[in-house]
Nucleic acid binder design. Structure first.
Length: 299
DNA sequence: GTCCAGGCAGACG
DNA sequence: CGTCTGCATGGA
């Protein structure tokens, strides 16, 4: 299904129920900025602007783009959202979460960007993760073409570039104790000791085990990469927010531990558990006044 | 000032 | 096994 392009730098993608704010600014990606009613970011080393339009999404690039498949892939436009939602268990918490987050989608990010970004996420707030990622991109990422009059934009830095940096330079991006871990990961990928592309075809559990061999990558960060980059929809990252959501919404009396809740999630939420996870994550943060809606309204 | 953030790894029992 | 703690940094 080809997008109907107005010109080579614009395209329109027909799609129902695609909430850009919830999807781009909801804690699965860290490079999107709201600007003039749309969202601007960098995907696959291309500057990109996205806008919600009636019946779909409008996309704009800085350079002529003959093939938009990379963007369809990133936005997961081929996911049949109603069919996915129909596989969810019909329980009150999930019904409420789906109702409150209509149009929330998963993205398919590049593995290295996803891995590096989530390695920075340990005990950091989402706004701080964005700051760190922005600093890394400004200081180490290649410049990408932008339309006239726009501020400069950078690609996410390649593993080899970060591998050549010093720990001090990374710490200067406010990474703190995460700096040596990211440096080691970049060196492992750059040297070919960890082949991120090869993980695409592996079973989920094997890919997870490979990622977790990295210092600084435990179960939660590995699951984020599996879900948000590799597209393993059974991956179910349990962070402090999902922990809170599962406890409050499903086990209000008891206080199950993370491992117990992970086992619950493996059987309860079905084949698209990762989608359910993102709805619960977004829903509980929204209820706590921490969602992207509030951050936007506070300006 | 205190608590905590899309955790992880090592120490200790 | 399980629980506790340090780790950098800065929002809330």
């Amino acid at each position: 299904m080809a997008a109907s392009g107005i010109s080579a730098t614009e395209a329109f993608f027909p799609v129902a129920d695609y909430d850009l704010a919830a999807t781009l600014d909801g804690g699965q990606a860290f490079r999107w900025t709201r600007r003039a009613g749309g969202w601007e970011g960098v995907v696959a080393s291309r500057w990109l602007r996205l806008e919600e339009r009636p019946g779909g999404l409008r996309a704009e690039t800085a350079s002529p783009t003959p093939d938009w498949s990379w963007l369809r892939d990133y936005l997961r436009l081929d996911d049949d959202l109603p069919a996915i939602l129909a596989t969810f268990p019909d329980d009150p918490p999930l019904r409420a979460a789906v109702a409150a987050c209509r149009g929330l989608r998963l993205l398919r990010q590049e593995p290295w960007e996803g891995l590096a970004s989530f390695m920075l996420s340990a005990t950091k707030q989402i706004v701080q993760i964005r700051q760190c990622v922005a600093l890394l991109c400004e200081r180490f990422g290649e410049l990408v073409a932008v339309p006239p009059g726009r501020p400069p934009a950078h690609a996410f830095p390649a593993p080899a570039r970060l591998a050549a940096a010093t720990e001090a330079e990374l710490r200067a991006c406010k990474l703190g104790f995460r700096a040596p871990r990211l440096l080691a990961a970049a060196q492992a990928v750059a040297a070919g000791r960890l082949d991120l592309d090869a993980l695409r075809g592996r079973p989920c559990a094997e890919a997870r085990a490979e990622l977790m061999r990295l210092a600084g990558v435990g179960r939660k960060i590995a699951d984020c990469v599996l879900l948000f980059a590799y597209g393993f929809q059974a991956a179910f990252p349990v962070d402090v927010w999902v922990l809170k959501a599962l406890r409050e919404l499903y086990f209000p009396k008891r206080r199950p531990k993370p491992a117990r809740l992970r086992r619950f999630s493996e059987t309860h939420f079905g084949p698209h558990a990762g989608y359910a996870q993102q709805y619960l994550f977004h829903y509980i943060r929204q209820r706590a006044g921490r969602g992207p809606e509030r951050e936007r309204n506070r300006r």
